[in-house]
Amino acid sequence: MPTEFFDIERTSDATRVIVRGTLDVNSAPALSESIDGIVAERPTKVVVDLSGLDIIDSSGVAVLVKLYKGVRGVGGTVVVQGARDQPLAIFKLLRMDKVFAL
């Protein structure tokens, strides 16, 4: 169920996960639940749009890793776009900028 922190859009060629504001220990669990649904659909491509994301913590990173692993695990690809500022710094610190090709 999308919240003020994220939306999920399904197009003919991809599932788009649009995250905005704060993805942290308080907001990540709702996205985590939705990720279970996305992975169950066995998508071929998931695009994660982080251009509206201002702040992330390790719980937020964990849920994005869960998405990445889950989609890859069912044979799909994950494209992460638009990370900037504090979230990008955290991805770099955790060496996930290379995994997510940021």
């Binding site: 913590d57 390790s58 990173v61 964990a62 869960k66 692993k69 955790l94 996930m96």
Partner: peptide, 20 residues
């Protein structure tokens, strides 16, 4: 220390704090 190459889904918090 989290094993970053294995894409951990937890155990990163104290590492982040120490690094920053």
């Amino acid at each position: 220390m989290p094993e970053l190459d294995s894409l951990p889904e937890g155990g990163m918090g104290i590492h982040i704090a120490r690094a920053l």
